[in-house]
Amino acid sequence: MLSEQSAATVRATLPAVGGALGEISERFYEGLFAAHPELLRDLFNRGNQASGTQRQALAGAIAGFAAHLLEHPDRRPDEMLGRIAHKHASLGIAPEQYAVVHEHLFAAIAEVLGEAVTPEVAAAWDEVYWLMANALVALEKRLYEEAGAAGWHPWEVVERVAETPDVTTFLLRPAEGTPAPDHRPGQYVSVRVELPDGARQIRQYSLVAAPGSALRRIGVKRLHGGPSPEGEVSHHLHTRVEVGDTLELSAPYGDLVLDDSTGAPLLLASAGIGVTPMISMLGHLAATGHRAPVTVVHADRSPAGHALRAEHEEYTAKLPDAAAHFWYERPEPGHPADRTGLVDLSGVAVASGTRAYLCGPLPFMRAVRAQLIGKGVAPADIHYEVFGPDLWFAQDA
């Protein structure tokens, strides 16, 4: 909990600091990478740095955390922190790295805000930072302990399948010959690859296979930036990784985890490559004989671009009380007119007490979430996963 004196200072300075966070985060990353170029080469996503999305996410997280401390002084924003902690754990972030971040973040704050950063202001925002950092360190420590097989482990590619022109799935088995920790439906792994320039870049990919298998299966959408930073890892995986090659994987992480223990109706909504965690969830539901109602919603550009469509339909058909609703921008002849274009749930029945899981582009998830709330779904029962930096808070800030 933020001290009373610091809370007053943060409340008074939040508009000024929040308004400058975009510039602060830009200066922060410039200073951090100048002092530690290995972090940009081997830890931070160079594509997100090039596009600026990581800077937006950092600014949104800091502003969101500070605002939460002021509005709810007795409650920690565990949903936001948990999502960040899972991502950090998948990257192998260590506690000592928070001191490095602190050094360069506060240097950037002082540089941007100048004389406005009095000792009192610096102390108050220092308290905000360490409240957030120490909470993340504790959460990440627990995640590492639960994972058991923390760190990087080699996995051999045993199959690759071109699901669509832009999406390829890779089936992998442990190359060390030891059992890997199981995952929960909806989780992802980090994949680390060495690129032609020697950089060891990391990306996260949802696990497609249902839990219980000794194998891992990931779906990779090729970004059309080619070998540029925005698409360098997907380009590498699509063009250079073949059966028999080895990839480095982290343990499974991710907080978008299916909870089917309550018997509540479920709604699984995805768009584009956001289908991958939903296939894992549906596979789990089919394998465990789930009997409660399940509504499947998916949006894509066309049926041909709908990755894993056959599995989407197959798993849904195996459930006794499930229905699938697919929307396409460019549908096949005969596709229902009310399933063309953007997702419109007005004609879809949503049962009382539904728990919803969303994955896809942020505008899609915002629109679906608003429609679900309009149909009476409790906001606390709507869970989401953002591929890449979480800009939900950045856009609200």
Rank of each mutant, 00 (worst) to 15 (best):
V100A: 05
A123M: 06
G82I: 04
A123Y: 02
A67K: 07
A89V: 12
M132E: 00
P73I: 06
A135P: 05
A50D: 12
Y98E: 00
A59E: 05
N48S: 15
A61Q: 07
R46D: 13
G114N: 09
L113R: 01
A67M: 08
A133F: 10
P95C: 09
W125P: 04
L136T: 01
Y129G: 04
A67F: 00
D74R: 14
Q56V: 11
P95W: 04
E103N: 14
E120V: 13
L91V: 10
Q97N: 05
P73W: 11
G52K: 10
F106N: 10
T118S: 14
A99M: 09
F44M: 07
E111W: 04
E120G: 06
T53D: 15
G82C: 06
T53Y: 07
Q49F: 12
A94F: 07
G60A: 06
V112I: 14
T53G: 07
L69V: 09
G92T: 02
R46G: 01
E71V: 02
V137Q: 10
G82Q: 09
I62E: 01
F65P: 02
V117W: 07
H102Y: 15
Q49N: 12
A135L: 09
A59G: 12
Q97K: 01
Y98Q: 03
V137P: 03
I109D: 08
S51L: 14
A67V: 02
H68K: 01
A108G: 09
K87N: 06
S90C: 05
G60W: 02
L131F: 08
H88D: 02
A85W: 03
E103G: 13
L91H: 06
E120H: 08
A123N: 09
A94L: 13
R55M: 13
L105P: 03
A57D: 07
L136G: 03
D126T: 12
M132D: 01
L105W: 01
R76S: 13
A116D: 11
A66R: 05
E79R: 13
E96N: 15
L81D: 03
A135W: 04
G52F: 11
L58T: 05
E79L: 13
A107I: 09
E96H: 15
L81V: 00
I62N: 02
E79H: 10
R75V: 14
T118K: 10
G60S: 08
Q54I: 09
R46Q: 15
R55V: 11
M80R: 08
A85Y: 03
A135E: 14
L105I: 02
L91K: 04
H68M: 05
A99I: 00
A94G: 01
Y98I: 00
N48T: 08
E120R: 12
E115P: 12
H72W: 02
L91Q: 07
V100C: 00
A63K: 08
V137C: 06
L81G: 04
L91W: 05
S51C: 11
A94C: 03
G60R: 06
G64S: 04
D74N: 13
G64R: 00
R76H: 12
S51I: 05
G114L: 08
W125M: 07
R75Q: 15
A107W: 02
L113H: 00
A124L: 01
G92S: 03
G60F: 04
H104I: 01
A133V: 07
A133I: 06
L136M: 11
V121K: 03
